[in-house]
Design a binder for these strands. Sequence first.
RNA 1: GGCCCGUUCGACUAGUGGUUAGGUCACCGCUCUUUCACAGCGGCGGCACGAGUUCGAAUCUCGUACGGGUCACCA
Length: 547
Amino acid sequence: MKTTQNPTAQNAATNPAINPVSPVGPVKNQPSAQEGDLTQQIVTRIAPSPTGDPHVGTAYQSLFDYVAARQAGGRFIFRLEDTDQNRYNPESEAKLLEMLDWLGLSPDESPLKDGPHGPYRQSQRLDIYKRHAEELLAEGQAYRAFESAEELEEIRKDLQRRGLSYGYDGRARSLSAEESEARAKAGENFVIRFKSPQKGETIIQDVLRGPISVPNQEVQDVVLLKSDGFPTYHLAVVVDDHLMGVSHVIRGEEWIPTAPIHVLLYQAFGWQEPKWVHMPLLRNTSLKKLSKRHDDTSVASYRQQGIVAEALLNYLGTMGWSMPDGREFFSLEEMIKHFSFKRLSPGAPVFDLKRLRHYNAKYIREILPLETIAERVKPFLAVAGLQYKNEDYLLDVLDIMLERIETLAEFAEKAAYFFTDSFGYDEQARKKLEGGQVHLEGLERELALLDSYSYDYDTVNDTIRNYVKSQGARMPDVMQPLRAALTGSLSSPDIAEVVSVLGRKRVLQRIGRALIAITQGLPDDKPEKPQKEGEAAEKKQEKGKDT
RNA sequence: GGCCCGUUCGACUAGUGGUUAGGUCACCGCUCUUUCACAGCGGCGGCACGAGUUCGAAUCUCGUACGGGUCACCA
């Protein structure tokens, strides 16, 4: 699933219809990119706020933004909504961009990849918002409000007592223009609020849900410009989406309640609305909206767990969307090829780790090439402090381990004995070793007879089977002790595979070590960890033998 | 609580008036088998409910229930 850089980013720069508004001059009635471009180019954007670790919901949104834009040869813009100085996290921007790169959803325009609509950080666009807010102020579509935080708190309490859910009663509407002007001049702190219509209704034409109508009385006089000069989301999102020529606002369902404000703002500015696409919310297994507090929402965390980007993307692509032919596994390219908003369903899906793991397993076992997996597994081995002899050895191990793991991190856990000799024996393995001395000695003899070049699968397999036959033994009685000796556990690939991959030296070494352990007492599987009660005495004497 | 959105197996979904309601994950069983897996086969399990429209409704309408979102100088 490679990301091919779409050439439309350059088109944007040369297309006169989508040039940015000049920094000075009137704000009204300037055509947006969308209006000027008759081909109805699709422009989407992801506009996260830099508040912490990038969220899977952001990845989800980005996927659909990216796919919608790519399919139509449009553009995908990254814009940082850093207008809340209190929650600003300086590392977040880089993390967000890195996440998108990792997923293969790199934006065409971003703070790091300049385009015709920059800057792409809202904190660098303050003058633009101010101008727009003042425009509405001058036209009487907005007004100054001078209440302090304490006063607002009082107002809110009062409203609540009266059973109203609003946060502000619009009292500053009645200030005369002169008084408003005078108090502002005098240096009094104020915000600019939107003067929302008190009659009629506003209709949001949602692409997924059809028309959603809301009585205008329900629409509050929201703050547009804060007293610190920063815009609120509502002002910034509308102004930027317009100026950046965004044609489709694809965002989470949680924005539906405030969408009327945005529609009303488009109307106030006299701008053409974008298409509204309110995506279903990703939910946790308790059916609540995924939240940082209660759920693992960090993309980086899934990456650390050994989820591959392709699988995460594919999985997210099945949340609320499906391929026309019902395929469940598809690449980003295939999704782009077949994407349509019509196939999006509005019900909020559950983000289920089990199912994600299933997708991941499919990708690492069947879809991605073994060489790719080898590359990606290396960091996990490094973290676990495991060394591998050479590429071929790694590929051999991967080849027989892949069907036993679902994530890259699991490889480092479950295949550790291929990369280190200092592993312990788990409880079941120790039991098998105890009863397996005779056969282990027998196998040691037989396997020693083979030279290291004969440690191919067939020869090893024949040798072991011949031994079993010659002894008239039961297969498991021979195989299980050997498995325990070589891997420290009773779950492993086919034992002949293990022997041939490990090679003569390691195999004989491990059998020898196991035999010593049997006669001298078996070492604990995790020598450094506290022991279970009842086994303490036994384990004391085993100390130091596990090396 | 107000407003808004949603509702097909436990989960992800297909389905747009006529299907024995299909697939996938999970779960259970069987087969394979030296273990663990993989794979294959089979099973369990669903249209929230009630009216209406219609010859006929998962599909259209209305109501109810349930779930969710949202009510900041946060996004």
